[in-house]
Design a protein around this nucleic acid. Structure first.
Lengths: 220, 220
DNA sequence: GTGTTATCTGAACTATCGTTCAGAACAAGA
DNA sequence: TCTTGTTCTGAACGATAGTTCAGATAACAC
């Protein structure tokens, strides 16, 4: 049985940890892919995609390097799957959070919290997502671009909703600019966040971020 | 005569374009280094540091690849000098802009304008600066970190000055967080700026950016 | 047990990388 | 023209990259 991750998902048996004994075959296969992907994310985050080697990733994952090719097609697919997973998780996390509330202000705030919380607990993945945004090519790139646009649209809608709620009118350009500025502010996060120092500031950070984008609507 | 770019600057003769005939030897040497560095910046911006090869850079610069080693020590030094130049230019541009004004609000606005204008006219360099921030090692890395801190401190000071001017008190944490959010918003710029589409929006973008950070101080 | 299929790995292949170097080409002063 | 030092390049180096594959090993059905 072989891998083909762009279209469908194959399933088979393996084990990376002896502990993972009691799993069903499919679960183990998925767990192995997971383990490889998170190791790859860590290595890509540390050395960047271009400077990281398959052998580095295998070492970090504590497996032999040809084993990676049993589960994944090639190096680019590693990056693709890391990115896809991250975006899918971001989208579904955001959607589940904002669905619980109807107040436009609260919805925007929840989106920011959702994005930053995911960022804080998935620093390696986010670093990869942000830095390697255009290291993918062809269908891989197209696929990720689509997801990114989807995610971005959620944010833009929330911003529009919040503006309307405050009786401010934003034209297309303003909405686009403000959305980009907000994503910039949030995506820069991994460059300065140090868990040991900043963990207790988490909600303050999220508040400041909301306050900032909210404030951008004040003076008009 | 040889190169040594961490400490002092060497000088000698060469010519990359026949046009650059009338230059003095030192000027030509510097012009050649410049030409190599800006070609390297373009290639690093396009393919990332890790994926770009010396041969790619030489091709882009239309020179033979060993020639790069006549002027520069190694690949890392290319990245180092690109980064150092960019930061030095950013610092001196910002300083010359804000020195012309004493109003705290205008000074902050001028800093933002300065940063974004530089960004807009040096997209490749900024992309490299932002993405390859930690691809340097040892003294190279230490040197750039120092410059970055210096530049960042300028911004922080301006933010503090502006807050004081509006009778808001910011504690250390808030200042740090807001500075980081502002830099994030600005440094994300290269990911969405398309000259053909956005050139006319330049000052609007800078205004929105200022309004955003100014607005962050409003609601307290 | 045997057979079958899924899983894994050592070894090897080719390409390309960063870097070096011996010497060619060139410029300039004598 | 000859000399001297600077500038440039073709060719080559060792290292390491991504990837493949034949065969070893393990898992399971019978």
């Amino acid at each position: 049985m072989k891998k083909s991750n762009l279209e469908s998902a194959p399933k088979r048996v393996a084990r990376i940890k002896p502990a993972a004994r009691a799993m069903a075959p499919d679960e183990r296969y998925d767990a192995n892919v997971d383990h490889i992907l998170s190791s790859a994310a860590a290595v890509f985050a540390e050395k960047s995609f271009g400077l990281a080697s398959i052998r580095d990733i295998a070492t970090r994952a504590r497996i032999s390097f040809p084993r990676i090719y049993y589960y994944l097609r090639n190096k680019e697919e590693l990056l693709y799957l890391i990115s896809r997973r991250a975006f899918e998780q971001l989208v579904s996390l955001a959607e589940s959070r904002i669905s619980s509330n109807n107040d436009p202000e609260e919805r925007l705030r929840l989106f920011i919290r959702s994005h930053l919380e995911y960022h804080m607990s998935n620093l390696a993945e986010m670093k990869v997502l942000v830095r390697e945004a255009d290291s993918l090519t062809g269908r891989y790139a197209a696929d990720i671009t689509r997801l990114k646009r989807e995610y971005s649209r959620i944010c833009r809608r929330l911003l529009e909703g919040y503006a309307a709620h405050r009786n401010k009118t934003l034209d297309r350009e303003q909405t686009r600019i403000l959305t980009s500025l907000l994503f910039g502010a949030m995506n820069w996060f991994y460059t300065w966040y140090e868990p040991a120092r900043d963990y207790e500031q988490r909600s303050r950070i999220m508040d400041e971020c909301f306050r900032m984008i909210a404030g951008a609507l004040s003076a008009r």
